[in-house]
Design a protein around this nucleic acid. Structure first.
Lengths: 253, 253
DNA sequence: ACCGAACCGGAGCAAGCGCTCCCTTTGAAC
DNA sequence: GTTCAAAGGGAGCGCTTGCTCCGGTTCGGT
């Protein structure tokens, strides 16, 4: 799942230290019924595969909530003990529900991403102005990320649009681009990849400048958006051939 | 030196794990003579304060060279043992020369920054076109950073222009900005802070997209530069009041 | 050639952190 | 109420990593 793993990896891949922020590849909140279908013995489906005890369900929810808060505040690198503490459960409980810290992170970010993308869709279709849809999208994604370290970290750790989450996001951005392009608002050689990577770059600016220069990222965003406008006619440097998205090069929002 | 340290910190601040990428605050290659002046019992001055043994000098140089390479390749988080191995010295030797991993990192990055900034000055004064000087600067800083993980990491870890290194960089960018502004090439409300943070943001893009989309950062740079141009007249959102650069909020190039 | 101070090197310490083991507790079917 | 599989919890293991300790070695002045 992660990059450059040693050779062992018996079934537990985030073996030691390595554990890059995340790899939102599989099961982004899988549909409850499609649980035991494929060979993926991944995180058990969300709403009780077949009668989970009530306390277990409660604890699972508590873990998810605490993890969401802690990851958002402190980033992907927090001690698992902190999450256990905040959710009021022991380590054993936490690890029964999520076999790996990575699994927990993936689940949490997957949920957040789902709600976020739904919201983004609604907003985008609420306006008829393509340019406003695009700028609103950037505004939204950056606002979200300015409040969630884990999202930014996992984004920048494994950029590149792969995985179901990232692909849905990618095609959403692609729609926005097409709308703007048809209206002649976007300079003609902007690719969807440009937009995806631009959002990632600005995300990082949000994270970096968050403490020292609050709100400064809006200025950078404004500058970048102006640079995207069709009023700039000089062609961009050629995009280099993309190195064939490897099957294990995942990402997130 | 770093942020949010516990209370102990007996004299060794990067006590455990914490060790954020860096904090280029003090002694950016201090002048040899001003060694024992202030109370700063920092890294001993470079060229033998008073007769260092020849082998010690050789080892110090080897450590610096190896550390430079290793930090550039693998980032600030490498194991100190790796540096010791690559430079052919033992841990004891390494830690006699640099009392802390952080010290080593600061020294290495400080040197690299010095040579880089000198080069930047030469290039900038070699052209009469202010806009080309500005774009050349961005091009140069990003090219450098695309080959040096440690620089990017330390930049994004402690953004904000403080410390002697960062301040020299800041005033250099300020010169570039003034030249462009006088020539009417830059949109009028661009601040130096905008430029500094923009470079930081793009640096991150360089790091992030380096593996998956080599050279892509040039497109983002192009877009941003177009956004900086005076052809964009719409005013940017107000910059928020900067939170008084704290005495210990350092950064680097 | 001699001597002491400076230097070398790497085994080892301590702490952080992901994860497991195992005994205890509890929910819910009967 | 009884029973027992499922759930709980936390001490502790194993590994990493920054840093130290100390016996042996080497330099450079005499």
């Amino acid at each position: 799942m992660n990059v450059a793993q040693p050779e062992q990896a018996l079934r537990k891949e985030a073996v030691r230290g390595t554990l890059n922020p995340v790899t939102l590849a599989d099961q982004p909140t899988p549909a409850p019924e499609a649980a035991r279908a494929a060979g993926t013995a991944a995180t058990p489906a969300q709403p009780a595969k077949r009668g989970r005890r009530a306390d277990a369900e409660r604890n699972r929810a508590a873990i998810l909530e605490a993890a969401g808060a802690v990851f958002a505040e402190q980033g992907c690198a927090v001690d698992v003990r902190e999450i256990a503490r905040r959710s009021g459960v022991g380590m054993g409980t936490l690890y029964r529900h999520f076999p790996t810290k990575d699994d927990l992170l993936v689940t949490v970010l997957g949920q957040q991403f789902d709600t976020w993308l739904t919201d983004a869709h609604e907003r985008a279709s609420a306006t008829d102005d393509p340019w406003q849809a695009l700028t609103g999208f950037f505004e939204q994604i950056l606002t979200t990320q300015s409040r969630n370290r884990a999202v930014v970290e996992s984004y920048t750790a494994t950029n590149g649009p792969t995985s179901s989450c990232a692909q849905r996001c990618y095609s959403f951005i692609d729609d926005l681009r097409t709308r703007c392009m048809n209206a002649g608002l976007l300079r003609p050689d902007i690719t969807t990849t440009d937009l995806v990577l631009l959002s990632g770059s600005l995300s990082q600016a949000v994270l970096t400048t968050g403490d020292t220069h609050p709100g400064q990222w809006r200025r950078l965003l404004h500058i970048s958006l102006d640079g995207l406008s069709s009023r700039n006619t000089e062609p961009l440097p050629e995009p280099e051939p993309e190195p064939e998205p490897a099957a294990d090069a995942p990402a997130i929002p």
